[in-house]
Design a protein around this nucleic acid. Structure first.
Length: 111
DNA sequence: AGACTGACGGTCT
DNA sequence: GAGACCGCCAGTC
């Protein structure tokens, strides 16, 4: 599916030590508003492949999405992010304002 | 072909 | 700030 291929391409662009939300990936992949497709596509990716930084993709809440279908890979994802220097708070959330990937910075300082 | 479900997001209350 | 509802597309029954 070309649709998923676009998603993988965008995910592969996420730099080390940064994260992106499903919605952000969807938008960059030309699937604005269809964040579910991103998560669905990542589900089909083999976690052991390593050619795709799937662990750098989290939901808009800044948390790692958990699901029984993932067999605990959700916790693995958080561990990988922590190894990249990303810090999780007590609620298991990351500071998106700080770690969110910005492919196209809008304001240098933020006005 | 119809209906249900799913690694989600945005908006409203 | 948190919880509820709706919409999205693709895959499966």
């Amino acid at each position: 599916m070309n649709t998923y291929a676009a998603i993988y391409e965008v995910v592969a662009q996420i730099p080390y030590g940064q994260v992106a939300t499903y919605g952000q990936i969807a938008e960059l992949a030309g699937l604005a508003g269809k964040a579910r497709l991103v998560g669905y596509a990542l589900y089909q990716v083999d976690p052991q492949q390593g050619n795709i930084p799937w662990h750098r993709v989290i939901n808009a809440k800044g948390m790692v999405s958990e699901s029984p279908l993932r067999r605990g890979t959700d916790h693995w994802q958080q561990a990988l992010l922590e190894k990249e220097g990303i810090v999780f708070d007590a609620q298991g959330k990351v500071n998106l304002r700080q770690y969110r990937w910005q492919p196209k910075p809008i304001s240098p300082i933020g006005n």
